[in-house]
């Protein structure tokens, strides 16, 4: 057969998002949390691109463009925060940041 079923692409992006969630919630490192977020965004991007192809609409691709832009913004601020926190506490363990408890 020619072509890929849409469902398989969705499954791929679903697996990526799940991995991202796992990375963001299970790893006890601030940088890994950010990486997990990136993985989730990546999974969503793949779904959007596939949807653009599936319905022959360019909105999906435009979405991916904005996702990349926003990821860049998010990473720059996030990493700045991580650097700041590291300077303050000397640690990247999220468990240490529980002053609000």
């Amino acid at each position: 057969m020619a072509g890929i079923p849409f469902g398989h692409v969705l499954a791929l992006s679903g697996i990526l998002v799940a991995l991202g969630v796992a990375c963001a919630t299970a790893r006890r490192n601030l940088i890994m949390i950010l990486l997990g977020v990136e993985i989730m965004l990546n999974g969503a991007s793949i779904a959007f691109a596939a949807a653009a192809l599936r319905w022959q609409q360019l909105e999906g691709q435009a979405f991916v463009l904005f996702i990349i832009a926003i990821a860049a913004a998010e990473v720059s601020v996030g990493l700045a925060l991580i650097v700041h926190l590291y300077h303050r506490t000397g640690s990247l363990d999220p468990e240490k940041f529980n002053m609000l408890k």
Binding site: A2, G3, P5, G7
Partner: peptide, 10 residues
Amino acid sequence: PAAGAVLGPA
């Protein structure tokens, strides 16, 4: 049903 749609090269 949407998942069954086949994506071809474009």
